[in-house]
């Protein structure tokens, strides 16, 4: 149980003159749900993209199950099969039905026979509660449903880790709940997850650990109870204040930074 599934060691990334990630280190245990919070434009999404190799890091190392995935001789495509990614704007394949969206990775990448892939895909759609929408095209689904299909698509590859890049921020408020519910269920089932999100309620209830990032560095991390109620740094406190006002979800006695609880 002490073994890390994902080890991020001193990674850095810059675009042109801008440093996006500065010497980030982070270890994730199997079954952990880690929520990354922080102001926008601070490298949270880039961090996820680096783990999925959609962005290449400049320095440092990323180990998946103890194996360095950032060296040149590792196949990106191989790694990505083990790292599921869910995007802010869903990015379902528009020309495929929900079922085919979930199936295509199995048939084309994993070379699974069609009937077997179909069975597996249906199973994943059931997991996100969308078996009855299998033959719908993305354009015929609500945003929340599209995002759940996208989650099923990632799950179908049996990933070791799931990465969520602000999965609910493109959704209308009334559709956020259904997606968070699926994610909550996944966490309970023991899926290892890294989520970038502004949903503080979800973070507090589901996360094992919260990471607060700003300007490309991890400012502070800890279990939700600690980070939300006893943040060590003023910057964390400020951010939590702002986000609370914006989303207005905390009750008064749960005011961030309030140490009386």
């Amino acid at each position: 149980m002490d073994k890390y599934i994902l080890e991020i060691q001193n990674i850095s990334k810059r675009y042109g003159g801008n440093v996006i990630l500065k010497d980030i280190s982070l270890n994730v245990r199997e079954g952990d749900t880690v929520v990354i919070i922080g102001p926008s434009g601070t490298g949270k999404s880039t961090l996820l993209r680096c783990i999925n190799l959609l962005t290449r890091i400049d320095t440092g190392k990323i180990l998946l199950d103890g194996k360095d995935i950032t060296t040149k001789n590792v196949s990106e495509d191989e790694v990505r099969q083990h790292v599921g990614m869910v995007f802010q704007n869903f990015l379902l394949f528009n020309h495929l039905t929900a079922l085919d969206n979930v199936m295509i990775g199995l048939t084309k990448v994993r070379k699974m026979p069609a009937n077997q892939a179909k069975e597996k895909a249906m199973q994943e759609l059931r997991r996100v509660g969308l078996a009855d929408r299998a033959s719908h095209y993305p354009g015929q689904l609500s945003g929340g449903q599209q995002q759940r299909v996208a989650i099923a698509r990632a799950l179908a590859m049996d990933p070791r880790v799931m990465l969520f890049d602000e999965p609910t921020s493109a959704l209308d408020p009334e559709l956020i709940g259904e997606v968070l519910e699926v994610m909550r269920k996944l966490a309970e089932e023991g899926m290892t997850m890294l989520c970038v999100t502004h949903e503080m309620g979800f973070a507090r209830e589901v996360a094992d650990r919260i990471i607060f990032m700003e300007h490309g560095v991890i400012v502070e991390e800890g279990p939700p109870a600690e980070l939300f109620y006893r943040p060590k740094f003023e910057r964390t406190r400020e951010f939590l204040w702002k986000i609370t006002e914006l989303y207005g979800k905390h009750k008064d006695e749960e005011k961030p930074g309030d140490t009386s609880t």
């Binding site: 959609l54 495509d77 990505r80 099969q81 394949f93 528009n94 990775g105 084309k108 990448v109 990632a154």
Partner: peptide, 11 residues
């Protein structure tokens, strides 16, 4: 985006 989503599942 579609290319990225496809690459993300290992294509």
């Amino acid at each position: 985006d579609q290319m990225m989503a496809a690459r993300a599942i290992g294509m």
